[in-house]
Design a protein around this nucleic acid. Sequence first.
DNA 1: AATGAATGAGGTTTCATTCAT
DNA 2: TATGAATGAAACCTCATTCAT
Lengths: 213, 213, 213, 213
Amino acid sequence: MGVIERREREKSIRRDCAIDAALGIYKEEGYHAITMEKIAERAELSRAALYIYFKSKDEILINAIITHAEYFAEQLRIIYDNREKHKHRLLETMWECFENYYEKDPDIFNLAQYFHQNEIIRNLPDYLRDMLYKSGSNVVHIQHSIVGYGVDEGIFIQCDPRTLSEVIWTSFLGLMELERSKYIFREKSHFKVTRDLAIKVFMRGILNQPDKN
Amino acid sequence: MGVIERREREKSIRRDCAIDAALGIYKEEGYHAITMEKIAERAELSRAALYIYFKSKDEILINAIITHAEYFAEQLRIIYDNREKHKHRLLETMWECFENYYEKDPDIFNLAQYFHQNEIIRNLPDYLRDMLYKSGSNVVHIQHSIVGYGVDEGIFIQCDPRTLSEVIWTSFLGLMELERSKYIFREKSHFKVTRDLAIKVFMRGILNQPDKN
Amino acid sequence: MGVIERREREKSIRRDCAIDAALGIYKEEGYHAITMEKIAERAELSRAALYIYFKSKDEILINAIITHAEYFAEQLRIIYDNREKHKHRLLETMWECFENYYEKDPDIFNLAQYFHQNEIIRNLPDYLRDMLYKSGSNVVHIQHSIVGYGVDEGIFIQCDPRTLSEVIWTSFLGLMELERSKYIFREKSHFKVTRDLAIKVFMRGILNQPDKN
Amino acid sequence: MGVIERREREKSIRRDCAIDAALGIYKEEGYHAITMEKIAERAELSRAALYIYFKSKDEILINAIITHAEYFAEQLRIIYDNREKHKHRLLETMWECFENYYEKDPDIFNLAQYFHQNEIIRNLPDYLRDMLYKSGSNVVHIQHSIVGYGVDEGIFIQCDPRTLSEVIWTSFLGLMELERSKYIFREKSHFKVTRDLAIKVFMRGILNQPDKN
DNA sequence: AATGAATGAGGTTTCATTCAT
DNA sequence: TATGAATGAAACCTCATTCAT
């Protein structure tokens, strides 16, 4: 038993190695540069060995995304569990959580967005699509719960909580996309300024009594 | 003379054909599926002929984006020129313009966002990067002007117009990114609902006297 | 008649233009870089127009070589015609002629050698091979005559004049090949020194009474 | 261990196969006809497999040249090591060595000359240029040593040995170039006659006391 | 006579994946 | 379990040449 367990653990370590390798490449050289050869090299494995742990290249990437999403879901759950405590700063707390998620690993965040595009998903085999879907649903579900609480408590404006949840997420996404395309449009230093204004505007729009804040 | 003119027109038509073909493929099969062979086939040209009209595959795509951006800039300019008339619905008018831009060809919009990513731009030859940059700057410039007007007139909250312009654009971008990843998260019909709430929230946050609207 | 003549002359000028263009490219960028497009551009003609004056790309190049060879043959003929005068410096005079030929246009000289390679010639259509052959024979023939005179007069060592003619030519060729590959083996400044020693050695080997010189 | 060794040997064999294939094509169809597809076909490998063993097409050819040059350098070294023994026939011995080198594989010899041309080298990546350069330098260096010995011992005429070494090499090169272009100018059978005269003339020019020989 | 447009054929290289060992 | 070797399939791009006008 001990042997089997150890093996399982080793296997799991190797999987993580490969996932990290893939992300490292994404970070340094971009999506196009992720090749099985490079992943293998970084993970100190042979290319063929990767296929022992993963069925395909996409599976590696999807796993990277899911791992990250799980962390995100956890953080959101913590907020929900302590919702009473966060009552007076619910929106800010959510944003901070989003930003943590992003900042923990901006590359993986972007990779996730990349994969969530229609085009990519369409060409995925079913089982990977399902993995992605489940992981995404989970996150969405907790977000809904938090926003639902905010609406119920009269913290947010009165509306359908699922929809509002999407709007909040949306406003964050847009900011990140701006950040992503910063190269072409704007100097980097300006980003924080834009972010701050975005939050301000947003709070004004969503909170029931923005003045109070 | 007539001959030269006709030739120019034909040439222009063929260029457009190629661009359309590329977009068609993007629409149906996604970015990765765009190959010179497929473009050629759709445009009813040989692969080699494409290289008469464009120096490279990227040039085709960049041209698609720029053409579209020019249309967008034009629409924005019209708004600016008639800013007095739009005074009472300035934010809505901008949003409608954004949506028109998006809806005129959602694929090209997405393609543009795709190309604006750091990773992609980094690997573009200088002359294409410049084309993209100029086209982008132009749009941004007009947006700034409109928002500047809104701030000056006290329609929008008091703040730096360039920053606010970015925030507005950002909020739209996020919505579009949600739309893009709709496949995984949500049923399509829900999009409009989310959109409407987003606008409402946003107007509340940006307009000086949201009640009046 | 005048019209026809003028046309002929114009045609001839255009041909020369194309030939010059091809050589210019060879000089500046090397054999691989010679493309019909570049030739056309330099000759201020369209690519298609080149095919009015020449049946193929090779024909242009072969013509370049032949034109140059004719000049060479002429110079050799002048030496032969004045052989009595050159009696006391016959070998030097020949070498000087070779060097003039080379220096007039080193690139075309090298191009000629290039084309004279088995591989290239084998793939030439018959009519071009014949042109090359005739032009080459002509040069060889005059060289033979000069060397024959040198042998008859006892200036050169006693041997078959055709063979000796080849040996002389050979010794020159080798030097040029060294020059051609100078990049890899040697600093340029050293070339003249090598040349001078080569001539000295050679005169010692060929002349009947080298001391006298 | 045995496994690793065997693998190494097999790998080496495959590399040689590819090199041989390339040379075979060069021999039969000329430089321009060398394509990766043909090499692969002859070496009974896939095109992609070639890229396991070599980084590029040029690398295959350069390797062919270097392998051959190493053999040449070895032969020259043997002469140098036994220089005392060869004292009375030093020049002839060198020539014989040159001819062996040439005859062992005339095609590779010609290919080497081809690559040593300025134009070709200019477009080579640095690491290949260096390989070529090192291999060439090595050969040149040993030649210099031998000729240096000949000059010191008073066998050759008194002069700078490096320069004389180049002159000797040059005279051989020229003969080979004649051979290469034999197709156009002369019947093959005549080559030996020319060669013999060339050597005779050359010995007369270079040796201190040609009569003695 | 002249040309813009078009193309067929071919070139090098890349990469995810498989398989024998 | 692990891997070195191998490959099929595809991608982008080039160029000499032809043809309709």
